[in-house]
Design a binder for these strands. Structure first.
Lengths: 194, 194
DNA sequence: TGTGTAAATTGACACGGTGTCAATAAGCGA
DNA sequence: TCGCTTATTGACACCGTGTCAATTTACACA
């Protein structure tokens, strides 16, 4: 019974996921998602109040499937500030390509939809926490050459989705180059040396 | 006669400009613009084929009013590569806040509208030329610590609209802090030293 | 002073997409 | 078989874009 519910719900979530991933930023229509899920358009409204909430649910679903929390948790184990920064950049930087399509969609919707904006901002606030923790660890080591607050902002910006998109999609950088250059820039900017 | 035409046209352009500027990214409706311009909705279609082209026209209008070309031209006068980098960052970095509202709108539309995408990409390609020229000047001085192509990409990304938005709007940095930190980061990243 | 022409207005409409609703059907446990 | 939940079908309201035709306004020129 409830397994029936979650099966249909999951089919919808996965169909939406696939569509958003294959066409980042261009929010699929409800009828497209319904067709892809093999379900009637109205069935979507049985499981999600509206389009925005459906997309937000896809985001949460992704985070659950991928286990973001655990992933970012790992960086907390690092001993030194430098190691922690490295671990955080590695974890987040390699997470971005996996969520980009859906994230980009929410990012675009953010501008015109208050609910999308809130969901996105919360997610980014969580990410910023990770930045702040890494920066705090650097500060504790005396490795930071700037204000903690500003250093966090800088790292947050370097690791933002639009920055990743710009370098990998617009400039065509392979993921490895993105990782190495962002790491180098973060070390330079925050610690004054690579 | 033709001055009448351009008067109405200009009223529309300025009304759209104001609306886009006051609510960046949220593309105003045609009826909103018409009302703001004191003109009927259909009059907009007498001067512009559609909404996208109207917004693109606003962008071009802005560039003409502000004289971007002259502004960026100035950086070419600089003697050393370092001075040229500095001049370019100053010119572009201080230009962004003046065009942000309209630029952001086009940036959002870029995702779903092919014409908006082309107009935006052309504009950004022009900007990239400026980055490339500054990087080339640095290379000529032997001041560059990385590949010219990658250095250009990096500078292009640091000076992108989303990066500006992230730091000044999301992080709340004042323009001066944005300018000084981006300058520092660019010097560090490209030349290896501030 | 009137006439011709371009610009603007008015009101109507088609189209596509979201979200709602009511009636009906299908699946399944008791 | 009954009753409940889930899903389908088809219709509809609403909103925003873009199109159209009929009409009005304004003004240049004779």
């Amino acid at each position: 019974m409830s397994s029936e519910i979650s099966t249909t719900r999951d089919r919808i979530l996965n169909a939406a996921w696939t569509l958003l991933e294959s066409n980042p930023g261009v929010a699929a229509r409800m009828s497209d998602i319904a067709k892809a899920a093999g379900v009637s358009r109205q069935a979507l409204y049985l499981h999600f109040p509206n389009r925005t909430e459906l997309f937000i649910a896809v985001t949460r679903h992704q985070d659950a499937v991928f286990g973001v929390q655990d992933m970012l948790e790992a960086s907390r184990a690092a001993a030194t500030g430098e190691a922690r920064l490295q671990a955080f950049i590695t974890a987040w930087g390699n997470y971005i390509p996996r969520i980009f399509g859906v994230a980009k969609t929410l990012l675009v919707m953010r501008e015109t939809d208050a609910d999308a904006a809130q969901a996105w901002d919360e997610r980014m606030a969580d990410m910023r926490e990770g930045c702040a923790a890494a920066v705090a660890a650097l500060a504790r080591d005396g490795a930071l050459v700037m204000e903690e607050r500003e250093a966090t902002d800088l790292l947050w910006t370097l690791l933002s989705i639009p920055t990743w998109e710009h370098l990998t999609r617009l400039c065509g950088w392979p993921q490895e180059l993105y990782m190495s250059e962002i790491t180098r820039l973060a070390r330079l900017g925050l610690c004054g040396q690579a």
